[in-house]
């Protein structure tokens, strides 16, 4: 081998060694599988340092759709879940995969769409009626199509409207909320979005207005739960338990309520744990 080749190999080996150093195995990992909405909004970056300081437990956040987060829990690849799809969560706990499920907070979904509003849904407060009108007008609608909590909520609304959405106007994107909002804007389409992600984009100059909001069906509750250690003995259940206690404690709940969207100053999540409800009857 040439001297240069030896040098390249040496550099590579040094990098390899560095890679090992980068992941000290000393403190137990706590893997939190959560939805893109809690992470992308900056909420976890704002909350987690306090937990890490208090307990010394390093939380590793994997931000995916709710469907994938539940799947990670089912396979024992995550220790604790923070998700927003109540029906699926109940099934998950019912099948024995999850334990210690607790309410944490809520925000809401809104329907956004083009200013011209070809389906005439602006101002409606009934999401199912709005969806039915969009379908009747065959106005373009972008769906997440990714089994995320938002997608599950959307399917629930279609069910409520008694419509199986099909046709050229119904676009199943298979992407995250941010990408879907961009698609809806480019296509002049309607879509269902969580308010937090929408506000973040609004601050960046997003153009589609909110057309429908305030329906109880659009309520978006978040729950936390631990992956059942009896199913997956290797999960960090102790860490998960401490995390759940901390997240639902009055102190953390107050911080959730105080968290506002950086650019607009609007609150993004409303605290809703047992401890919070007891203190604010």
């Amino acid at each position: 081998m040439t001297r240069r080749g030896t040098l390249l190999l040496a550099i590579g080996l040094v990098m390899l060694a560095g890679c090992g150093e980068a992941t000290p195995t000393a403190p137990p990992r706590l893997i939190l599988a959560t939805t893109t909405s809690t992470y992308d909004s900056g909420l976890l970056d704002y909350l987690l340092p306090a937990f890490e300081e208090e307990t010394g437990i390093q939380v590793e956040v994997v931000a995916v759709g709710t469907g994938q987060a539940l799947e990670l829990g089912r396979n024992g690849d995550a220790d604790v879940l923070l998700v927003h799809a109540p029906d699926q969560e109940e099934a998950f706990v019912g099948m024995g995969y999850g334990v210690d499920r607790e309410p944490v907070m809520y925000n809401d979904f809104v329907i956004v769409g083009p200013e011209e509003d070809p389906a005439g849904v602006a101002g409606l407060t009934n999401a199912a009626v709005a969806f039915a009108q969009i379908a009747a007008a065959e106005a373009p609608f972008v769906s997440r199509g990714d089994n995320s909590g938002t997608h599950m909520k959307e399917r629930r609304i279609w069910l409520e409207a008694g419509i199986g959405p099909e046709g050229d106007w119904y676009i199943s994107a298979g992407q995250g909320m941010g990408a879907v909002l961009t698609m809806a804007e480019e296509l002049g389409a309607y879509t269902l979005t969580d308010r937090g992600t929408y506000l973040s984009r609004l601050a960046e100059g997003y153009s589609l207005p909110i057309l429908v909001e305030g329906d109880p069906l659009l309520f978006n509750p978040y729950h936390v739960m631990a992956v059942n250690p009896e199913v997956h003995p290797n999960v960090n259940y102790e860490g998960a338990k401490r995390f759940i206690e901390w997240l639902t404690s009055l102190e953390t709940q107050e911080r959730i309520g105080a968290f506002t969207h950086a650019a607009t100053g609007q609150p993004l999540f409303h605290p809703d744990s047992e401890a919070w409800r007891a203190a604010h009857p």
Partner: peptide, 15 residues
């Protein structure tokens, strides 16, 4: 730095 470490290690093992 991490990108360099991960891809560097993968390249060494891969070669």
């Amino acid at each position: 730095l991490r990108t360099g470490q991960v891809t560097g290690a993968a390249l060494v093992v891969g070669s």
